[in-house]
Amino acid sequence: MSIGNSPEDERPFEDVSEEARPSIGRTLRQARVAAGLTVDDVSTATRVRIAIVRAIEADDFTPCGGDVYARGHIRSLARAVRLDPAPLMKQFDALYGGRPAPTPAAPLFEAERIRPERRGPNWTAAMVAAIVAVVGFVGFTAFKGDDGTKDVADGTAPSSSAPATPTTKSDKPAPVKPAPSDSAIAAAPQDKVTVQVSATDGKSWIYAKDHNGRMLFDGLLKKGDSKTFQDSEKINLVLGDAGAIQLYVNGKKIDDDFQPGAVERLTYTKGDPQAG
């Protein structure tokens, strides 16, 4: 009888370490192939460019343009190949340090400066106005007094002014201003496109630019926050979590059924509402 290890003892140990887990790109590629989809199919379904899809499947997230974009693309690709995006998001956060801090918002153009800056009272102007009023009142009183003295000296009684004709108040009530509706956006002008973005159901990353490609906003809207953009021709939007966003375009509510977590790229013009 031989003494030694049994066959069970000679079997290799199963590698369950973190390094043995398939990478994000490899997981997405295997799921795509298993679903019988091509890169073109996934690109068409998610509106993510083919070059970016190939880069992500190769675990190269540089073409995404930042971690925020990468997270949105990974989530979209995972849903397209019928994967739960949550484990991939957790794996991405572990590799790259979690969600980055939102990019500071760029200075907006004139449409973001609808409200004037609040200033304190101008005490100098108020004092000058008060002095002018006092001087005017004293001068008027002195003038009236001189006229009365002259009339008495000449033996002429000062004439009394005719009674003023009583004014009648109109019984017609003043028109009541209608309360602004939720869909009104500061009287959106006809010659421009006005887009209001409100985070009603949660927080979402937002990117907006005008028709010249100039960035208007790049940052995170928390729940309850709202941003308004305006341009002479069109507004381009990217919504990191479209399901948390409510849109008003040219004063009208957009009722598109955006899914929670979906990345949406939209364009609106003066003739909308209609998704671009």
Results as ranks from 00 to 15, higher is better:
Val132Glu: 11
Leu108Ala: 03
Pro178Arg: 03
Val138Cys: 07
Leu108Glu: 04
Val135Pro: 07
Thr168Gly: 03
Ala179Leu: 14
Thr141Arg: 15
Phe143Arg: 14
Asn122Glu: 02
Val132Met: 14
Gly139Gln: 08
Asp154Ile: 07
Ala142Asn: 11
Thr103Trp: 05
Pro178Glu: 01
Thr103Ile: 03
Glu112Asn: 02
Gly148Asp: 00
Ile131Val: 15
Pro107Phe: 14
Trp123Asp: 04
Ala126Gly: 14
Pro163Ala: 02
Asp147Gly: 13
Asp146Thr: 12
Ala157Tyr: 12
Ile114Asn: 00
Lys177Ile: 15
Pro104Asp: 08
Val134Asp: 06
Arg115Tyr: 12
Ser159Ala: 12
Thr167Ser: 10
Gly139Leu: 11
Ala133Glu: 06
Thr168Pro: 02
Val138Tyr: 07
Arg118Ala: 06
Pro166Leu: 06
Arg119Asn: 00
Lys150Arg: 06
Ala162Thr: 05
Lys144Asp: 06
Ala105Arg: 04
Pro180Lys: 08
Lys144Val: 05
Arg118Trp: 03
Val135Ile: 15
Ile131Arg: 13
Gly145Leu: 13
Ile131Asn: 10
Ala179Ile: 13
Thr165Phe: 08
Ala133Leu: 09
Lys150Ser: 00
Thr149Ile: 14
Phe137Glu: 13
Ala106Phe: 10
Ile114Tyr: 10
Val138Thr: 11
Ile131His: 12
Ala130Ser: 13
Arg115Met: 10
Asp146Cys: 09
Asp146Lys: 13
Pro116Ser: 01
Pro175Thr: 06
Ala133Arg: 08
Val135Leu: 14
Gly139Glu: 05
Ala106Leu: 11
Thr156Cys: 06
Gly120Ile: 00
Thr156Asp: 04
Pro175Ala: 03
Gly155Met: 02
Ala105Gln: 07
Ile131Cys: 14
Pro121Lys: 01
Thr167Trp: 06
Ala106Met: 08
Ala164Asp: 07
Pro107Ser: 11
Thr141Phe: 15
Pro104Glu: 09
Lys172Asn: 03
Pro107Glu: 14
Leu108Lys: 07
Lys150Asp: 00
Arg113Gln: 05
Val134Arg: 08
Ala130Phe: 12
Ala157Phe: 09
Ala162Leu: 12
Val138Asn: 04
Ala133Cys: 11
Thr156Leu: 12
Ser161Trp: 03
Phe109Ala: 02
Ser170Ile: 02
